[in-house]
Design a protein around this nucleic acid. Structure first.
Lengths: 350, 350
DNA sequence: CTGTTAGCGCATTCAC
DNA sequence: GTGAATGCGCTAACAG
């Protein structure tokens, strides 16, 4: 049988209450007593039963998720995953609220963070806009003992506890490597469609992509970046324009959202460039199956949400997490390894 | 506040014990009473607190993992992940034992299953050899109420509760697609190195690979399969022989283990074929970095082990699992998206 | 500063 | 058939 608080109390010759005070770092214990208890804990190899502790505390974890509003398939998918987590909240002792703010809007995000701060939740997960003011708000939260996890896009110069997202530089490099190899000897430049250079994930992807193409596929030129603000209409216009101006475009790397517009433009294009895009949505999935897109790099939104929750709960309790379990992978999808569409097929496991 | 057993008892006008009998499907309750209680449960929307239940029961989950013995990097990595899970067993209320059996040996595996059966654990995870006798043993376990999860390689004709592994046909297709594209116009046949056609995962990978190459890259011939029994020495001999017999080999797909031998053979090869292999081990990682291997398809052993444990616990309790969380991905690694080597770098999160 | 006691939500004896 | 009482391991009043 695992040792319990009673065993510690007996071994140290004190009462349960004193043991509890030591375990939970509460004041009101003489240093000698404290040391006596700590020795006993060490000696008998006590491991706290977190479940029992949570039961006794009737602990629930109020969490706030802040993410961009708007018509962005990936972000709406992320929101759906958060709602799925809300469904499970009874089992996971969480109480999750969702806040949406205008995309790429640092002041709005900051306001949302301050508002969330006032609620004093057990933790906050936020899709960051990379700005100093946002970082300042996050640091204030941390100073106040509220754990913060950045989600999808990270925040420079902040003390956020954890980043639940992919290594976007590596993602860009991977896209570059695939693009270079898929194109082979095919001549022509490569176009890049981005959302905004205001978010760190987009900047990092571009950087990685550039680095690999320059180093390993010299002679392949990259056209000036098209900034489509994750808007399908704008993306379509930009891509259409690029394909007209440069009819010899060999490849397109779409590193942001707005892929619906990209796909529309591709459908009427006389040439068939090699296309690599990010995030598996209903649109990119379809385009992959139709061979309009050659590869999709994805981050698993469900994994990111579950990971953010696990990490926030652990940080709130000062517990460790399983490092490997919280690493978000860069999923590479070709049309041959698409996962089943869970929205359209019944689950087998429930 | 969430309703508890007390609330049910009050609402139904019975005692706690009766509520418990109904909840846990125990006999000794009149049908009328039972229905009265069930109505109350329904009405007040009761959700059982599993943590509290486990506390009251002092429940632990004895689990058995059965995997192949021998000098196979992937399997030893899998074993290391199981040992990591054993480290966490105090927190997860598990008690895990590891059993190793000779590889590709159905009778030995069957004996191990029978032995595990005698222990009557809460669940069994097994790397299956695909044979009817093994399936029979598994079915007997199931009939006896012991949940079984197949790990890495699945078992045909059995009632295993769940398969914790990748879709190997899709993995083979993915390898075929990548191989076809990476080779582009480069002439020459493709060699395939397998372990054994006795395990289902290898058969399925080959099938998928063949299907895509035949359908989408006609004109690319596949040489007769080399069967290396996951043994480095044998693999090296076979690959060396193939490269001598067919100096124009353009690509090699290694769909099993024994990659150490493959890599040794590649190092002294005058030609530089495009190589796609399975499983990220220290050897394949290094070869990827050295550009001896072009892509590695991987299954995350840590994820598989954690998933198997979650599923076995859930099945033992008759609970649901989060489908998406238990889907094991086909990870595609190029040298640009290699994860940090956790064995050699300090963890940031603990 | 330290100890006693009740209770978190549930399961399980043992009476009735 | 049914109910009252006790305890799982821990926390949190409230006394002393």
């Amino acid at each position: 049988m695992r040792p319990t608080v009673h065993d510690i109390a007996a071994a140290a010759g004190v009462s349960l209450a004193t043991v509890d005070r030591v375990l939970n770092l509460r004041p009101g214990v003489r240093t000698v007593t404290r040391e006596k208890v700590e020795k006993a804990i060490e000696r008998i190899g006590y491991i706290r039963d977190v479940a029992a502790a949570n039961l006794a505390k009737s602990r629930i974890y109020p969490l706030v998720f802040i993410l961009p509003a708007g018509d962005n398939s990936f972000m709406r998918g992320l929101e759906a995953e958060i709602r799925a987590a809300i469904e499970r909240s009874a089992f996971e002792r969480t109480q999750i609220s969702i806040v949406t703010v205008p995309a790429f809007d640092a002041p709005a995000l900051q306001a949302a963070l301050e508002e969330a701060h006032a609620i004093r939740p057990a933790g906050i997960a936020v899709v960051a806009v990379d700005s100093p003011e946002v970082a300042a708000s996050v640091n204030r939260l941390r100073d106040d003992g509220i754990p913060v996890v950045t989600l999808v896009s990270d925040l420079s110069g902040s003390n956020r506890d954890h980043f639940a997202g992919v290594d976007n530089t590596a993602a860009g490099r991977t896209a570059g490597n695939l693009m270079g190899r898929f194109l082979g000897e095919r001549p022509g430049p490569v176009a890049v469609l981005a959302g905004s250079m205001l978010v760190r994930d987009h900047r990092e992807r571009l950087e990685g992509f550039r680095a690999v193409l320059d180093a390993e596929f010299p002679g392949r030129t990259i056209l000036p970046v098209l900034e489509g603000h994750d808007d399908p209409t704008e993306a379509e216009r930009l891509v259409r324009g690029a394909l007209e101006t440069h009819p010899d475009i060999a490849g397109i790397y779409s590193l942001g959202a707005g892929n619906r517009g990209l796909i529309t433009a591709l459908k009427t294009s006389p040439s068939k460039p090699c296309v690599i895009a990010h995030e598996l949505t209903p649109h990119t999935r379809r385009a992959l199956q139709d061979s309009l897109i050659d590869a999709v790099l994805n981050q698993d939104a469900g994994h990111e949400v579950r990971s953010a929750i696990r990490v926030l709960k652990a940080k709130a309790d000062g517990l460790a997490v399983i490092g490997a379990q919280e690493r978000i992978r860069i999923d590479i999808f070709l049309k041959d390894n698409l996962p089943f569409d869970e929205a359209r097929t019944p689950r087998e496991d429930l």
